[in-house]
């Protein structure tokens, strides 16, 4: 219990730290929200009036506490780029698409990497090992956006299995959304599959040298019984932590890949907000992703504790 409590406190502190850094970073900018809203040519009087109205004249820490207080209540203010549109509604309209994309990518990673990882760990011939190493190393190094461009070329322009840019939101047709998102998900997950395969295979191989494996063989277990009954369970423990990292990487990868496939998600929102200097949106999206990643890390820690009680000590 003490372990869980300590983790939760660390989590909250981390989140506050990130929110403070993000907020301060945008406050030291020479161009503030009022200039961003009215443009560079606005008269000083109008700027001053708007600053007063937006509360920009107050000290930065006061503004931070107002902002973080509102954020806790789920209010991130108004977008600068789209007048009169709340940041919340911008995010709400896109969150579903990004969540679905990340989910499909993660499922792909699990479904492909575990069997391939086991298969790869079983290869003992020199040629087999060399082939696996080359294929995984090569796949790991492909940037996901380039993979996205290749997939577009092959499946959209070549085979015409989907039309790039014609995404149907899941609210309209869930099936159509999933079919479209499979392609960006492939671009995101392929390098991650290669990483997980390599990690799992290394983990299995290092377990195979341990004493309990020799005992199991001595008892008369077959190779497969040892692998599936004893080794796999133990070698999955470090993989759990690794999958936590992979989830974070998938979220980051989707920011770029959404751009390639024109998926209206959080990533495209973030990039548009960055190019248009729409700070309230950037702050909110970063905080949201930060919260998500920290929550994932917490869940991973909890699973880890359940699987391996030694960490509590």
């Amino acid at each position: 219990m003490k372990y869980v409590l300590k983790k939760i406190i660390t989590l909250i502190v981390a989140l506050l730290l990130i929110s403070l850094i993000v907020f301060l970073a945008f406050s030291v900018l020479p161009s503030d929200a009022a200039i961003a809203k009215l443009g560079q040519n606005a008269t000083p009087e109008r700027l001053a009036a708007l600053r007063e109205q937006m509360g920009l004249n107050q000290p930065v820490f006061v503004r931070y506490f107002v902002w973080i207080g509102n954020a806790f209540r789920g209010d991130f203010g108004q977008s600068l780029q789209y007048t009169g549109v709340s940041v919340n509604s911008l995010i709400a309209g896109r969150l579903g698409n990004s969540a679905l994309l990340s989910l499909i990518s993660f499922i792909m990673v699990i479904v492909f990497s575990i069997p391939i990882g086991i298969f790869s760990a079983k290869r003992r011939t020199v040629v087999g090992k060399a082939t696996m190493t080359t294929v995984t190393q090569l796949t790991m190094g492909i940037p996901s956006f380039f993979l996205g461009v290749l997939i577009t070329y092959a499946f959209s322009l070549g085979l015409k299995w989907f039309i790039i840019g014609q995404y149907t939101p899941p609210a309209k047709s869930f099936g159509a959304a999933v079919v479209y998102l499979i392609f960006p998900a492939l671009a995101i997950s392929l390098p991650k599959i290669a990483m997980t395969v390599k990690f799992l295979a290394t983990s299995i191989r290092s377990e195979l040298h341990k004493d309990y494996v020799r005992t199991a063989y001595a008892k008369g277990c077959t190779r497969n019984q040892v692998l599936y009954g004893h080794v796999l369970k133990n070698s999955m423990v470090p993989v759990i932590t690794f999958l936590g990292v992979i989830v974070a990487e998938i979220v980051a990868g989707s920011i770029v890949v959404e751009q390639v496939f024109a998926v209206p998600g959080i990533g495209t929102l973030l990039i548009t907000a960055i190019t248009n200097r729409d700070y309230p949106v950037v702050e909110a999206v970063v905080l949201l992703i930060a919260f998500f990643i920290i929550a994932i890390n917490f869940i991973v820690d909890m699973i880890y504790m359940a699987v391996d009680p030694r960490v509590k000590l």
């Binding site: 660390t10 502190v13 981390a14 730290l17 990130i18 974070a248 990487e249 979220v251 980051a252 200097r277």
Partner: peptide, 21 residues
């Protein structure tokens, strides 16, 4: 502790935030 926080984030996301300001 600062390390833990920064390390949990994918470098591309953090780079995006930095470049954005």
């Amino acid at each position: 502790r600062i390390n833990d926080v920064v390390n949990a984030f994918p470098s591309l996301l953090l780079a995006l935030v930095f470049v954005s300001f």
